[in-house]
């Protein structure tokens, strides 16, 4: 695990099978805390999910808790999801 990632309220979820529905992912994520926003990007041409998602929690603390809670333990369609800080908060100070 990379400990250098900037903390943020937004969690990156990777290794998502395309059969994972919005609802299932959301229902998992809210077990750690209230989800303010959930984005599951789709490929513009094929309309298929890209295999990752971003979930915004209410605070960095809760995002950190969610990452620790779920990492390595959530397997959907034989794929273990990856969790990490996305560093994509709108409000957090960026390197720009």
């Amino acid at each position: 695990m990379s400990g250098n990632q900037a903390r943020s309220r937004t969690v990156y979820i990777g290794n998502l099978d395309e059969r994972v529905t919005d609802r299932v992912l959301y229902d998992i994520l809210i077990q750690a805390g209230r989800v303010v926003d959930l984005i599951i990007p789709k490929d513009r041409e094929t309309d298929r999910p890209k295999g990752f998602a971003f979930a915004e929690y209410e605070s960095e603390e809760i995002a950190d808790y969610a990452i620790r809670l779920f990492s390595g333990l959530v397997t959907l369609y034989n794929r273990t999801l990856r969790f990490g800080f996305s560093g994509q908060d709108k409000s957090s100070s960026s390197t720009s």
């Binding site: 805390g33 209230r34 809760i62 809670l69």
Partner: peptide, 10 residues
Amino acid sequence: NMQRYGPPPS
């Protein structure tokens, strides 16, 4: 992990 880290703070 909830037993390890405690219940969800939210």
